[in-house]
Amino acid sequence: MYTWRVVGRSGATTFEGPYGWFGTSAGATISAAKKLGNGVPVAISDCAVTWSFDTGAYVQELNRSAGIALIRTENLIQGKRMSISGVVSTGANYERRIERISEVQLGTATPRPLGLANIALGGGDFFYHAANGAGQKGVTSGFGLNNIGLLVRIWGRVVECDPESPATWFKVDDGSGVNVKCVVPSGVAIDPSWTYVGVTGISSCEKIPGGLQRLLRVRTQDDITPL
């Protein structure tokens, strides 16, 4: 990968613009891939598939340090270790992703979800640069390590359910001052009688008026444990 920066001078004054990137980042970690601008090719040498669905997938580092969304991944299977390559981009909700995927299967891996308090879900900005999309934008009022794209687990009291039928989301309050919206895919049922639950899913984000809110993407019915 190569970097460039525009520098201008007017008399004794120097003006420096932001950094830009071009080239391929081969053998990168997911964290390094997220630091790249949109449209930059990248190759990740070893990662685990934590969720595979109709339009994409999520992968993460084996040490649970970072995760990222993938687009158009017909051949990826949850629980597999993969080497992948593609092009870095940003989705409509500011979530970084890799598209135009090619992959090589390496074996199997089933990372355990990382337990988080609601207030820690999402996290703050990670080397975010709005001009070229580099980094990962954090959630509104987020702080600490950015964990968007990572498999996590939260616990708490169910305080609200989608009134539509079938319901597609519910919210969980763990007492940390933040309610987390949990969205479920087709085929996962939400029971309005739930009181307390543990929920596993992918840490994500959703653009709302005035900000970017925390979001947990549930994968299957087994990800929800009534307590």
Rank of each mutant, 00 (worst) to 15 (best):
W4C: 11
V6L: 14
V7S: 10
V7C: 02
G8D: 12
G8N: 14
F15K: 06
G17L: 13
W21Y: 07
T24C: 07
I30F: 06
S31I: 10
A32S: 10
K34Y: 02
K34S: 04
V40A: 06
S45W: 09
W51Q: 15
T55M: 09
N63R: 08
A66C: 13
I68A: 00
I68E: 01
I71A: 13
R72N: 11
E74N: 11
Q78P: 02
R81K: 15
S85Y: 05
V87E: 04
T90A: 01
A92G: 09
Y94I: 03
R96Q: 14
R100Q: 15
V104Q: 12
Q105G: 05
L116H: 09
N118V: 02
L121C: 14
D125N: 11
Y128C: 01
H129E: 08
G133E: 06
K137T: 14
S141H: 12
L145P: 01
L145R: 08
N147S: 13
I148G: 07
I148M: 00
I148L: 04
V152H: 10
G156A: 06
V159H: 05
E160V: 10
C161N: 14
C161P: 03
P163W: 10
P163M: 10
P163V: 07
P166S: 05
A167N: 02
F170A: 11
V172C: 04
D173E: 08
D174G: 06
S176N: 10
K181N: 04
K181E: 02
C182W: 00
V184I: 13
V184R: 11
V184W: 05
A189T: 15
I190W: 00
S193W: 01
V199I: 11
T200W: 02
T200N: 14
I202K: 01
S203N: 01
S203F: 00
S204A: 13
I208Q: 15
I208P: 09
T220W: 09
T225M: 08
P226D: 00
L227Y: 08
